[in-house]
Design a protein around this nucleic acid. Structure first.
Lengths: 215, 215, 215, 215
DNA sequence: AATGAATGAGTTTTCATTCAT
DNA sequence: GATGAATGAAAACTCATTCAT
């Protein structure tokens, strides 16, 4: 009994089923038949909607990136200072809906698999660069551009590392703890930058009390 | 062209070929035939030595864990203070031989795949717990056990995250940069703990002006 | 060219093809591809229906046992005396549809192969014990239980032996001749039992001239 | 350490190992490696001695036929009457050395497999025809040639059937019981023939009291 | 002579994809 | 649109056979 407008729901349903199947069996063991069964449709229909297994997988990754992007965008909309923007980015990566085992499993699978899949790789790098770039812009308010880049990279590494380690845990992930861990790293770096600046200014004052600028 | 006594060399050769094939094609696209071709042997021989594709993959993971463990052990042997031991653990994770694209690719593949493979999972968790435990022991010299645990987890996350992100880079990884990033995190945490302790002591002094130390 | 509702016919077709392939090539040379080709389907479909080669072979044996059982049951339904029941059992084993080269070849293959296959062995023993038990019940009307057992075993041996020898013949088997051979054995045994009984009765009469019968 | 005259022993050893392997795994599961391992030699040597797996199997069958033939010949040498010769043939088929599970298993395997192997088939038919022919010659002393053929065939069937059924039993076969079963069949047939002849003679006497012979 | 490492042809099995219904 | 029967290409795996040692 075909219904109008069913298609979008079915597609969504198949994408969810794809993530769950990756979670349950692992990326390399996923079959179209399993996904279709979990989605409650025939394997023929799954292929009909997405064209091929590869395209179904690619669409799933697209979907996940879009969800993450949407979350980030809405978090950023409510951030009104550089520091808040940095936190918004971190929090967006541990949104309860994202930081679930199913999503984590799918996410890592795509992450690793992207190494050898050009089109997925491109997508993921765009996302990843945007993340680092957003962080860098925020951090630039507190430190040199060079340092900001480095700290942004460190922050991104820590976010990704927390995800990766969560994948092997038995207990569901706790966004709070994860956020605290990353926030702490950022805060230390900002504080350190502040102290360095102060020290530099002090040293400056001592070295050139006549007000001449050595830089 | 059978040769006697070649078995160990051949096994090693096949394990290397497995890592390279994972690197080149991705875990889910690996076939025994490709591995065997790269190792310069017939697919029959690969199966003969390892029993099955699964066991070849498992043996490869075993091998990688052992290599990493050996490196860590020899680094620890030369570390003579708690702080040095912490650094030794970090450095061991970015040993030039380990921090190569081929090894990184294989490593991540197994990491993610272990989520759905019980025996691999067990292996990896043992390794992972030992890493965090070693770090915690070292950090306990500078902070409370609770904090040490948290910082050790953060350190491990950052190490894993750096690996993960390196997997998607085009340029070969730079151990120096990676080590610096992680070391900085640890140093900040230790420094922070030192300051907290000092502050606590100061506060204590105020509270008990007679100079007695209750802790 | 998929058709709905074909499954049962296809399964039956594959089972027939299995018997024919065993007949033509011998059990140890049978391949799924040959069976599928003979049945006019792809090897994938054969596996799809039966799960594995082993299960296809097991299903074929099941089918043959069921056919034989059905034949026996319908023959027994029309038998109205102990002697007729014995004959019914014998005739059922040489039903023209069963006593064909193809069926004989498959039958013997399974028989011999069951020696080393636990689940097939169980099936075949159940059938074999039922056959001997049925014969024994019938023969008990003419002789002691002990003799009946022995004669039943002899009858079964002869039936199986006739099948075995037919397998190596060039000419198609002749049910008539086969039945006569086995019937003759049974008739002799029954006749002998009758004579023994009479002799015993006579001897009894001599021993107890008053005519009383102690038996 | 090659020894002169070892070859024959090795060949014999491999043939025994072949029979045992057939017994343990079943004809269709036999591999050269298993046979060689059981014989305590390398698979290369097994092939070196026999040329190929097929030839090793064929040699094993040859060997078994020769053993059976030798046994029969020595039994016949001690038989001094037609009736004794018949018994000798029967007994030879249940010689304790022959009527063992290992030999039975191998024997049946070759029997069934011969259906589709021309050279084995030829061998087996020669043996089988000789058996029936020997029996027929013996039985001709007691009945018409036509009846003798039929009874010989029945006897052979019963012998083969007893072997076949023994293959599926758990308990080791009992030659005594087997021999009794077959002997009984032969005795009945001979006795019956004797009675028929007497009846015919009697009837003859009545019908033609003048002594004329109607053939 | 004897080994067993090595091969590669052949077999089972899986699964994405197609297509008649 | 929707199904799932059917295919066939590709993969894992087995094993007889070869051959350097």
């Amino acid at each position: 009994m075909p219904k109008v407008g069913m298609e979008d729901e079915r597609r969504r349903c198949l994408i969810d089923a794809t993530m769950e199947t990756i979670h349950e069996r692992g990326y390399s063991e996923v079959t179209v038949a399993q996904i279709a069964r979990k989605a409650g449709v025939s394997s023929g229909l799954a292929l009909h909607y997405f064209g091929s297994k590869d395209q179904l997988l690619a669409s799933t990754m697209h979907h996940m990136l879009r969800e993450l992007g949407n979350g980030l965008r809405s978090r950023l909309a409510n951030a009104h200072s550089p520091r808040e923007r940095i936190s918004a980015i971190i929090v967006a990566n541990f949104e309860p809906h994202q930081f679930r085992d199913t999503v984590i499993a799918a996410w890592l699978a795509f992450y690793v698999q992207s190494r050898t899949n050009q089109s997925n790789r491109r997508l993921l790098r765009i996302y990843s660069m945007r993340l680092v770039s957003n962080l860098t812009v925020g951090l630039c308010h507190f430190m040199s551009r060079e340092d900001a880049r480095r700290v942004a990279e460190g922050t991104a590494s820590m976010i990704d590392g927390v995800w990766l380690r969560q994948a092997l845990r038995d207990k569901p992930g706790d966004p709070e703890t994860a956020i605290t861990l990353v926030e702490e790293y950022v805060s230390f770096q900002i504080e350190q930058a502040r102290q360095n600046k102060k020290a530099a200014a002090l040293h400056e004052a001592h070295a050139t009390p006549d007000g001449s600028n050595t830089q």
